[in-house]
């Protein structure tokens, strides 16, 4: 894989390599696993073992807008489970799933480091804090209106 060329073939770069592929493609395909395995000269099963250990890595294509619902301690006590439920109801997807139109995917994560604004979600890395239902639904609507482009 061209992307990996500059990366030294040292085993210690394996996670970095997977991160690079995911940053580029959004997920790790079977083909990518094989190419990573080739690059480092380590067995495919080992690459799979490593990547499946870490929560960050996805094996399937996520939505255009990746929603991370913070369920860190501060957010949890400020009602993150409700935030999640609002999204489940609105988007009809559960943790780890992607909407049919491929627009949104959702996962819960632990602490985005913005606990003082709890409860928070992040969408494609942008953090939204002090949420209530109305505010959240408005944010989602804005993204929907942006749609595919």
């Amino acid at each position: 894989m061209q992307l990996l060329e500059p990366l030294e073939k040292d085993r210690s770069n394996l996670i970095k390599a997977i991160q690079m592929v995911q940053a580029e493609k959004g997920f790790i395909s079977t083909q990518a696993i094989k190419e990573i395995s080739d690059h480092f000269g380590i067995p495919v099963v080992e690459v799979e073992g490593v990547l499946s250990f870490y929560a960050q890595f996805k094996r399937s294509k996520p939505g255009k807008y990746k929603i991370a619902v913070c369920d860190g301690t501060a957010c949890h006590i400020k009602g993150s489970s409700r935030v999640k439920n609002w999204l489940v109801e609105e988007l009809k997807i559960d943790d780890g799933e992607t909407t049919e139109d491929g627009l949104f995917s959702m996962e819960t994560v632990a602490c985005l480091g913005c606990c003082s604004l709890a409860p928070v979600v992040s969408i494609n890395g942008k953090v939204y804090g002090n949420l209530n239902r109305k505010k959240l639904l408005k944010i989602i609507k804005d993204y929907k209106n942006r749609g595919d482009n």
């Binding site: 085993r11 997977i18 250990f53």
Partner: peptide, 18 residues
């Protein structure tokens, strides 16, 4: 890459080693 346990020293070393 998203694993709390990697804060533990030996796990962190394993993780750094790939």
């Amino acid at each position: 890459a998203g694993a709390f346990v990697c804060g533990e020293e030996t796990a962190m070393i394993h993780s750094l080693e790939g």
